[in-house]
Computed example of a mutant assay.
Amino acid sequence: MIDRVKVIQPKGNLDASKSPEFRDEVSSLLESDAKIFLVDFKDVSFMDSSGLGALVLAFKTVRAYEKKLVICSINEQVRILFELTGMDKVFEVFTNREEFDKSLLSRALS
């Protein structure tokens, strides 16, 4: 099951200058065998509305392919942005990669 997960790990600021690169990376992975796309935010220090827009677009695109996009390791700034925009209700957010892995393993065993 773990081989059916693709990890996307943006770095630095996810803003207007990095959003196109993020969207391209997600698009390039859509044809893979992956069923789950994990966006690991551990190296993202800041995200603005452009980054959030790119993330929402990626979520919709991945869902159109009948795949799933989940998130882990968001910092306080990103968490607050998610809460203010209601995106914390849209995205499945894991505290870190270990929590995601445990969840994946428990789903595979059930």
Results as ranks from 00 to 15, higher is better:
A64D: 13
M1G: 14
I2N: 12
E76Y: 05
I80W: 01
F22W: 02
T95Y: 10
A16G: 12
S110A: 13
S28T: 08
K102Y: 03
K67V: 13
S110E: 14
A64P: 01
P20I: 03
A108S: 14
I71W: 06
L52G: 13
L52M: 15
I2Y: 11
D88S: 15
S28P: 00
V39C: 01
G53N: 10
D88F: 08
K68I: 09
V90Y: 09
E76D: 10
L109T: 15
S110F: 09
D101E: 15
S19C: 12
L104M: 06
S110W: 03
C72V: 02
F37T: 03
D15A: 13
S17K: 08
S32N: 07
L69D: 05
K6P: 00
F46K: 02
E98C: 00
G53A: 10
S73P: 04
E98F: 01
G12C: 09
S49R: 04
S32I: 07
E31Y: 06
V70R: 03
T61K: 15
Q9L: 05
E21M: 06
S49V: 10
K18H: 05
S28A: 14
V5E: 04
P10Q: 06
E66S: 13
E21H: 03
M87Y: 14
P20V: 04
V56L: 15
A16I: 13
D88C: 02
N13H: 10
G51L: 10
E92L: 10
C72G: 05
I74M: 12
E99T: 14
D24V: 01
K6G: 00
F91I: 06
E76P: 00
M87H: 07
P20T: 02
C72R: 04
V93P: 06
E83Q: 14
D3Y: 09
M1A: 12
I2K: 11
E83P: 00
L57P: 00
E21L: 11
F22T: 01
V62T: 12
V39P: 00
V7S: 08
F22K: 01
K89L: 11
E25N: 12
I80M: 09
L84H: 03
Y65V: 01
L38Y: 05
M87V: 10
E92C: 00
R63Y: 07
M87R: 07
V56M: 14
